[in-house]
Computed example of a mutant assay.
Amino acid sequence: MRNNLTLLLLILFISCNKNEKFVKTNVIPSEIDSLKTEAEIEKYIGAKDSNYKIFKLQNIQNTKTRFFPEFDSLNKILANKVNVKYSYVKADFDNNGYTDLLAIGDNNTNDSENPNANFEIPFTKDFNAIVLMNFSDKKTKLYDLDTDLCYPIVPKVEYINLQPFITVFKQKTKPFCGLKGNEESKSKLTYKFDSFIEYNPEPKSYDIEKIEFSTTPCMGQCPIYNFEINEDRTVKYTGTLLYASKNWKNVKYLKTTISDKEFNDLKSILNYIDFVKLNDDYNVNWTDDRSSILKITYNNGKVKTIKDYGLIGAYGLKRVYEMIIKLETTHNWK
């Protein structure tokens, strides 16, 4: 009888924890809360990130792209379908008490016709979906949700038990130059690992033994990486080119050691995005880009390989690539 009672209490405990509700942090007043007009918001965005100093808020219905009008029209249809008609939304996406800002609009900072153009931005995008994360009045960081070169997205703020998420809707794409098209899709994003990635309410816990990441050449000057990250935290680099401090170097073999935190962070995000269930192949719908191959050895020798033409197969994958590539400039290689 005592054993049955213990089992019942254990089941109730697990059930209560599984259904534990999101607890919203009290609002800490900041400058974003005081912004009332679009002009004030545009000025605030430009002041916080110089790459967006000439940013114009626009809802999707009023956006006019210069180079891809067909995709623009399809995005307006999709925006109407999911009832997204705003140019900005305020919400606390990381639940730290400070209000964040989702903004949609046209960034003219790097317009070739602008004599004060800031060429740190590779190209001017007529459509931008950005999030300015607010960590305090003195610390903010801007994230670009629209990683696709051709196809704009529809970002919608949705709440589940008071918790805000950004659902990104993507339009259907057609096959192009031998590349497969993709069906209309949506991804529910949350802020984790210093980025917006696909939300997973039940992360996995695989025993990750080795992480290998490599990239291929492109039609242009794309750096070629080949990383092997081992369980003992040693990292090996082999290849022909390494892009370090904006200088090309020919290398055959380099080695370094990363911290426990860096390795654990990589394992944590891979488990969070449940890498085993991700597609084996991803591709963008344009040509002349580079590909990546992510190979993960886990659970006593099992292997998952993900090929990604364009390196933006998923938001979580893109963040994994960034974390690995960052090692190239943050460590002493020998």
Results as ranks from 00 to 15, higher is better:
residue 2 R to H: 15
residue 3 N to T: 06
residue 3 N to W: 04
residue 5 L to C: 10
residue 10 L to F: 13
residue 13 F to G: 07
residue 13 F to Y: 07
residue 14 I to A: 14
residue 14 I to G: 03
residue 16 C to F: 12
residue 17 N to T: 04
residue 25 T to H: 12
residue 28 I to N: 01
residue 29 P to E: 09
residue 29 P to I: 11
residue 38 E to D: 10
residue 39 A to R: 12
residue 45 I to F: 00
residue 52 Y to E: 06
residue 55 F to Q: 09
residue 56 K to N: 10
residue 61 Q to G: 05
residue 61 Q to D: 12
residue 61 Q to P: 00
residue 70 E to P: 03
residue 72 D to N: 15
residue 74 L to Q: 14
residue 75 N to M: 07
residue 76 K to S: 07
residue 76 K to F: 07
residue 77 I to T: 12
residue 79 A to F: 05
residue 79 A to V: 06
residue 83 N to D: 12
residue 83 N to T: 00
residue 84 V to Q: 13
residue 85 K to T: 11
residue 85 K to Q: 09
residue 87 S to G: 10
residue 87 S to E: 07
residue 92 D to I: 02
residue 101 L to F: 01
residue 101 L to T: 08
residue 102 L to N: 02
residue 107 N to H: 10
residue 109 T to S: 09
residue 109 T to M: 11
residue 110 N to K: 04
residue 114 N to L: 09
residue 117 A to N: 11
residue 118 N to R: 11
residue 118 N to K: 15
residue 123 F to K: 13
residue 124 T to S: 10
residue 125 K to C: 04
residue 125 K to Q: 13
residue 130 I to K: 03
residue 136 S to K: 00
residue 140 T to S: 07
residue 145 L to K: 07
residue 145 L to C: 08
residue 146 D to N: 15
residue 151 Y to F: 12
residue 152 P to G: 04
residue 152 P to N: 05
residue 154 V to R: 05
residue 158 E to D: 14
residue 158 E to K: 10
residue 160 I to L: 14
residue 162 L to D: 15
residue 164 P to Q: 03
residue 168 V to H: 02
residue 171 Q to E: 11
residue 175 P to T: 12
residue 179 L to M: 13
residue 186 K to E: 11
residue 189 L to P: 03
residue 189 L to G: 01
residue 195 S to D: 15
residue 195 S to P: 00
residue 204 K to G: 02
residue 204 K to P: 00
residue 204 K to T: 08
residue 205 S to Q: 15
residue 206 Y to F: 15
residue 213 F to C: 08
residue 216 T to A: 12
residue 217 P to R: 13
residue 221 Q to P: 00
residue 221 Q to V: 06
residue 224 I to A: 08
residue 224 I to G: 01
residue 227 F to D: 09
residue 228 E to I: 14
residue 229 I to A: 15
residue 229 I to W: 01
residue 230 N to T: 06
residue 231 E to N: 15
residue 235 V to C: 11
residue 241 L to D: 12
residue 242 L to S: 09
residue 246 K to T: 09
residue 247 N to C: 02
residue 248 W to E: 13
residue 249 K to R: 14
residue 250 N to R: 13
residue 250 N to K: 14
residue 252 K to F: 01
residue 261 K to N: 08
residue 263 F to Q: 05
residue 264 N to Q: 14
residue 265 D to G: 03
residue 267 K to Y: 08
residue 270 L to S: 13
residue 274 D to R: 02
residue 277 K to V: 12
residue 283 N to D: 10
residue 285 N to P: 03
residue 290 R to K: 13
residue 299 N to S: 14
residue 301 G to S: 10
residue 303 V to R: 09
residue 304 K to T: 04
residue 309 Y to K: 01
residue 311 L to C: 08
residue 316 G to Q: 00
residue 317 L to P: 03
residue 320 V to H: 00
residue 321 Y to G: 09
residue 321 Y to F: 05
residue 322 E to S: 06
residue 324 I to C: 01
residue 326 K to W: 01
residue 327 L to E: 04
residue 331 H to P: 09
residue 334 K to M: 14
